[in-house]
Every structure is written in C-alpha cells, then in structure tokens.
Simulated assay, not measured.
Amino acid sequence: MTDILVLGAGYTGVAAAIRTAVRTRRTGGRVRLVNASARFTERLRLHQTAAGQRLADFPLADVVAGTGIEFVQGRVAGLDVERRQARLEDGRVLGYDKLIYALGTVTDASVPGVAEHAFVYDDYAGTVRLAEHLAALTAGTVVVAGGGLTGVESAAEIAEAHPRLHVVLLTRGRPGSMMGERARAHLDAALERLGVEVRTGVDITKVLPEGVELAGGELVHSDATLWTTGTRGLPPATESGLAVDARGRIVVDSALRSVSHPDVYAVGDAAAVSQPYGVLHGTCQGGIPTGLHAADSLAATLRGRTPKAFRFGYVHQPVSLGRKDAVIQFTRPDDSPRRWYLKGRAAVAYKETVSGSPLPTFGLLKRGLVPVWAFRLTGGLG
C-alpha cells in the first residue's frame, strides 16, 4: 500500500486526487484528500459570489464519491518533509509516502493595511462577507485594487449588480494589458458602460479603514476595498524546507516533482512550473493539466517507469464583464495575443462553457478518461 496525500481540494487538487486514485488503483494506492472546507469552491466564480449571486453547492465528499478517495476535512498547519508528515490545525498528523501539494496561494498582503482592512478572495467565507457588506450599502464607493483579469471581472460584476455604488478600479498598468488592441478596446468600453472609474498609473501604499492612500499622499475614499493584486505561497510550503521561488511557490522539475524533495509533487498556482517561454502563471487553464500530469507522473514512478516531461500551451484569456458581456482573447501557447477574439453574447456563451461546473470534467476523470482540452493544452499526458 502506497499512502498518497493530496493537500488542497480546488480544481487542481480534486483533479489530481481523482486521476491519482484511478491510475494507482492496481498498484495499491491509498489516496487521502485534505481540505479546510467540506465545500468545493469555484474560485473562477468568486467575483460572482462577491456580487451577491448564489452558486451551486458541491460537497467534496459527493464530488469524490465512488473513487475510493478518503476525504479529510482540516486546515493544513505545517509540513515535515523529512518525516513525510502533514500536520493539521487540530493536531492531527497525517503520514504519506507521496504528497501532491495543491494548496494554492493567498493574497500578498505586504502592503500595509491589506490584511486588516481589505477584502480578498482567499476563501469562500471571506467572499461571502464581502457580498454581505456590499448588499448592506445603500450608496458609496467600492475600490478594486488591481487591473488583472480578476480585478476587471470583479469591478464589472459589482458595478452591474450594484448600480447604486460607485466602483473605482485602481491599477498600475492598463486593464487587460495582456490582450490585443481590439479586445482591450471592448474591455475598456464595457467598463465605461458599467460606470466603472478606471485610474491607471496608480501605486497604492496603504489600505485604510475607509479608503486607500496612494503614492504622493492622495487619499481615495472607499466603503469597501477589494484587493486583487499579487499572490504568495502559503506557510506550509515556505516554512517546510522545500525549495521555493521568490513568491513562495514550490520549484518543480519537468515531472512536477519538488527539485529538493522528489516525493512531493506541486501543482496549480502553488508550483513554479517552467516552460520554454517562462513560468506558468496561476490559472485554472494551466492548473488542472498540472494536476493530471502530476498524477500520471506519480503513477509512472510507482510502476518503475520514467515520467514524461510536462508541456503546456495557453489557448485563451476569457474575461466576463458582468452577466451580459465578455471578451475572449485567443492566444499563442506563450500567452501572447493572437488576432482572434470574441466579444458580446458569443463571448458570454464561450466563457460560461469554459468556466462552468467542473463536475462533468471530474466525472470523466472518475471513468479513467481525460477531457480532450487537457490533451490539447498539454500535448498529451503521461
């Protein structure tokens, strides 16, 4: 019996756990999946939750039912990679032979006041608190910090759901800067239509109880501040002795094994995964393929085979702009924009398809199948 521990049950962790259970069933694999919440959180849709929308509830025990996976509810407090143990906050200690680390990242709260005064998307409960706070406001200003895709989606969603509130998007660069010119133009027009005030070239130096302070001393009033700028690795990775990069992500080899402790696999945005064009950035688009590949690498190792090298190419940058609009920038494998893009209703339909319920994907994995899109993104799995 090989004890395999999967830490984290987001999109990537669940996909890795199911794939591992299927691939190691004949070699005596025992898979345990650990997560702080008993609920599967659709992180791709947290901006919708923040705007007050109710999403479907997926208990994790039901998600992995029929796979032989043992679900363990508990928050990971630390790792002892020499003894091969994970310690939970309640004192339980879980041993392992092989570990898949899928705990993701959390908001970088290094700017003063973020931890105390800003709302973040680190978990479902925190997002619900933001939704409740926004619903209680009869008027006022909402500041969204960060012009990346998460910030843009959040600003648009909140502005559409709460037209009585003034939404201000503060960003150093141009929103959607990674997109092509025509896609960015549609994004800009959508934010203007929704009444979102966009301020670029902004550097926030402090978050206050009722606003933010900018470089130069200007104060911007805010009745709610949502921080979407930057992420970092969690303490279980950064304090464990595993080799990590400057952002606290576990550095892995081509098989997605830790370069310092090969019995540990890291996936999703918790891993620093190098490709010829650079290190992957944290998205579900790349996360699930890393989870599937790590599972295949682990299974191959248990069979005494050499794992294949992970290869990945981006396909698109999908951005919702409220419930009635979206823009999809299609990309080259290195994530640079192609000429093609979608906008409006066609983009909404596309976005809802790629960001829909993960249960069909998990269902395929339970049957030992891999979605076609995963093969296309990775060039084939091991």
Rank of each mutant, 00 (worst) to 15 (best):
residue 3 D to F: 03
residue 4 I to C: 05
residue 6 V to T: 03
residue 11 Y to E: 12
residue 14 V to C: 11
residue 18 I to V: 10
residue 26 R to D: 15
residue 28 G to K: 02
residue 30 R to S: 07
residue 41 T to M: 05
residue 42 E to I: 01
residue 45 R to W: 03
residue 52 G to Y: 01
residue 55 L to G: 11
residue 61 A to L: 14
residue 64 V to A: 07
residue 69 I to T: 05
residue 80 D to S: 05
residue 84 R to Y: 01
residue 89 E to W: 03
residue 90 D to F: 07
residue 91 G to E: 13
residue 97 D to K: 04
residue 104 G to T: 05
residue 104 G to N: 10
residue 111 V to G: 04
residue 113 G to K: 06
residue 113 G to V: 02
residue 122 D to K: 06
residue 133 H to E: 10
residue 134 L to C: 01
residue 138 T to V: 02
residue 141 T to F: 00
residue 146 G to A: 03
residue 149 L to P: 09
residue 157 E to L: 01
residue 165 L to F: 03
residue 168 V to H: 08
residue 173 G to K: 14
residue 176 G to R: 05
residue 177 S to Q: 15
residue 178 M to Q: 15
residue 187 L to S: 07
residue 196 V to E: 04
residue 200 T to L: 02
residue 200 T to P: 07
residue 213 E to P: 00
residue 213 E to I: 00
residue 219 L to G: 09
residue 223 D to S: 03
residue 225 T to F: 03
residue 229 T to I: 14
residue 231 T to L: 15
residue 239 E to S: 13
residue 245 D to W: 02
residue 261 H to A: 14
residue 272 A to T: 04
residue 280 L to A: 07
residue 287 G to E: 04
residue 287 G to H: 00
residue 288 I to A: 09
residue 292 L to C: 07
residue 298 L to E: 09
residue 300 A to W: 05
residue 307 P to S: 09
residue 329 Q to T: 02
residue 329 Q to F: 02
residue 332 R to G: 02
residue 336 S to E: 06
residue 342 L to R: 11
residue 362 F to R: 09
residue 367 R to Y: 07
residue 368 G to H: 08
residue 371 P to D: 10
residue 372 V to R: 15
residue 376 R to A: 14
residue 378 T to F: 02
residue 379 G to Y: 11
